[in-house]
């Protein structure tokens, strides 16, 4: 009796116990809100759908359906394609902005610029998506503008309710997320390295390619991950501006769950999408590790 009590007291004093105690609210939250639902979805994906009920029969049929059905495959490939294009567009546009703020804005003004970059976050995501609808719509800002100056005779239709509008909207929404990591990695570059590059005979452009870009790669890869991972599963944007051709995997999952009441198939599609994201992310993490190899901090 005495023995166990003192052992308990000793355990409570250890650093490990203290640590566990401190993270326990977070850990509890993560387990309840993240791990448990994930586990449930994983479980569902192996059960059999019985129209309005779920039959507890273990099966791979959902996965076979998710990976072989033409429709699901098309949507999955489209999601992957859209998020890759969004990632490419966002990161390519974010880099010059981050570069400009890091290299051409005076140090006293940098925080102001970063502040300005976050302005889009001041309104809700949903409102921003609606705004794009206003801008890109049949009678929207772009079309009336172009009609007004006589560049086009009838409104452009390829800019709304398809993949293009999804790409434009998502690229805008995620731009700050892409700018900030690149900016940080550019800020960390010792400016004398760039002088050294030029001192050793390279032009500004070659110095950029041989020094700045490789040193900014960790930031670029972080941006890629930050944009790619959430966009592949984005639901709101394709729902609102995607039209029938712009539907993505999240819309498909929603359809299965809420419209068709097919939890197992919806779960299987969700788990498959997660698997794809994981694989692509691991590739980038591996790349990042290669770039970070032999680097301090």
């Amino acid at each position: 009796m005495m023995g166990t009590k003192s052992r308990w007291a000793r355990l409570r004093r250890t650093e490990a116990a203290n640590g566990l105690l401190m993270i326990s609210p977070t850990a509890l939250y993560a387990i309840l809100m993240l791990a448990a639902p994930l586990g449930a979805i994983f479980l569902y994906s192996f059960l059999t759908d019985g129209y309005l009920e779920i039959i507890r029969d273990f099966t791979f049929a959902n996965y076979i359906e998710a990976w072989t059905n033409e429709l699901y495959r098309t949507v999955m490939v489209r999601s992957l394609g859209v998020s890759m294009v969004v990632t490419a567009v966002t990161v390519l546009l974010a880099f010059p902005i981050a570069y400009f703020v890091s290299f051409h804005v005076s140090p006293s003004r940098k925080s102001l610029w970063l502040f300005l970059i976050t302005i889009p976050f001041w309104t809700s995501y949903l409102i921003r998506v609606f705004l794009w609808k206003v801008i890109l719509g049949y009678n929207g800002v772009v079309n009336s503008g172009l009609l007004g100056i006589g560049l086009i005779d009838e409104p452009l239709t390829f800019i709304l309710y398809n993949v293009n509008s999804v790409v434009i909207t998502l690229a805008h929404a995620y731009a700050p997320f892409a700018i900030l990591p690149i900016f940080v990695s550019l800020e960390k570059i010792d400016r004398s390295l760039l002088e050294a590059g030029q001192d050793l005979g390279e032009s500004r452009f070659m110095t950029f390619l041989r020094v700045t870009l490789p040193l900014a790669m960790p930031g670029v890869i972080a941006s890629v991950l930050i944009v790619f991972i959430p966009t592949i599963g984005d639901y709101v944007t394709p729902q609102l501006v995607g039209g029938p051709e712009g539907r993505m995997v999240a819309n498909l999952i929603q359809l299965q769950y809420l419209k068709l009441d097919n939890y197992p198939l919806g779960s299987a599609i969700a788990v498959s999408a997660m698997a794809i994201v994981t694989v692509v992310s691991l590739i980038f993490v591996g790349l990042n590790r290669r770039y970070l190899k032999g680097r301090k901090a």
Binding site: D190, S192, L193, E195, A196, L200, L215, Y291, R295, K296
Partner: peptide, 13 residues
């Protein structure tokens, strides 16, 4: 001319 910088400016990558 070539320069030896105060920080040495060795390319870390």
């Amino acid at each position: 001319t070539n320069m030896v910088f105060q920080s040495y400016a060795i390319f870390p990558h």
